[in-house]
């Protein structure tokens, strides 16, 4: 089978359209169901406030307030990666959509990328809202000196996180019905180890082994670096390790997510399950 240049170009155009269309569904959802966004901004803010009061009660240094707010803002991405991307293929299967993706000429990766892109975009809006409201409510101070480093770290974190979400999406489907429970189970350990409400990597409390394991989750490096850059006034040279770590995660997660997707499709076509409803 020969594939000319025109063919590759057609494929690319087709798949860009698919990415856009799938992302569009996400963004439409955001506009059609504003209460989702309200919930996803308000609910994290409630526990975020509780922890800020707890730090106040403990008389912790003032920057801990900002730590919590940044953590809460980044947590929005993790929720979206878990529920909006990882559990999504499973969900699409349940609603009977998945097999229509499977029988269209669109690349499955394009579908996943569309989901991720749409999710990342509207979660960024939510995340910024959390940051803004948190900053208005409490007397926090930021000290940002290196905005380029912040942007690099943020983009790497998001890429790694959504790469992980895309990997999980296929794995969740392979594991079937437990998908939502796995997502649910993964929620708390992330709070604990990624340091949503406290610093992990720079803390004395955690052993090196714990820090290493925690770093598997892109959120850990991401939150720590963003806190250093945004709150502690650090620069690029102080977050080099974070950048290397995040880049490594991206380099591992993106190809793995593609492999897992292929594997999932293969299992599905071979055994006649996974993508098909009622089975």
């Amino acid at each position: 089978m020969s594939r000319g240049r025109g063919n590759i170009k057609d494929d690319l155009i087709l798949n860009l359209k698919v990415v856009y269309a799938r992302a569009y569904v996400r963004l439409k959802g955001l506009l059609r169901e504003p209460h989702w966004s309200i919930a996803e901004v308000t609910i994290p803010l409630l526990s975020l406030c509780a922890y800020i009061y707890m730090y106040t009660m403990l008389d912790a240094p003032i920057e801990y307030m900002a730590f919590v707010i940044v953590g809460g803002a980044m947590l929005a991405f993790w929720s979206n990666v878990l529920w909006g991307v990882s559990a999504q293929l499973y969900w699409e299967k349940e609603t009977g959509m998945l097999q229509h993706y499977m029988l269209s000429p669109a690349s499955r990766l394009a579908v996943l990328l569309g989901m991720a892109a749409g999710g990342a975009l509207n979660t960024t809006l939510r995340s910024i809202s959390i940051l803004l409201v948190g900053t208005l409510l409490f007397p926090v101070e930021y000290n940002l000196l290196d905005i380029n480093a912040l942007l690099i770290v943020f983009l790497l974190t998001i890429t790694a996180l959504y790469g992980m979400g895309m990997l999980f999406a296929s794995l969740f489907l392979l594991y079937g019905r437990e998908a939502t429970h796995i997502a649910d189970l993964l929620q708390e350990p992330i709070y604990l180890f990624s340091g949503i409400y406290y610093p992990v990597l720079s803390s004395q409390i955690f052993s090196q082994a714990v820090k290493l394991v925690a770093s598997i989750i892109p959120l850990t490096f991401g939150i720590d670096a963003i806190r250093l850059l945004l709150i502690m006034g650090k620069g690029m040279e102080d977050v080099l390790l974070h950048i290397v770590g995040l880049s490594l995660l991206v380099a591992i997660l993106l190809p793995s997510s593609y492999i897992a997707l292929r594997k999932m499709e293969d299992v599905s076509k071979r055994h006649g399950r996974l993508t098909l409803r009622w089975q």
Binding site: D10, Y24, V25, K28, P105, A106
Partner: peptide, 15 residues
Amino acid sequence: LTVRENLWFFSQLYG
């Protein structure tokens, strides 16, 4: 999504 938007969505799967 509306009827039209759904059809549009599926049309994009075929480019």
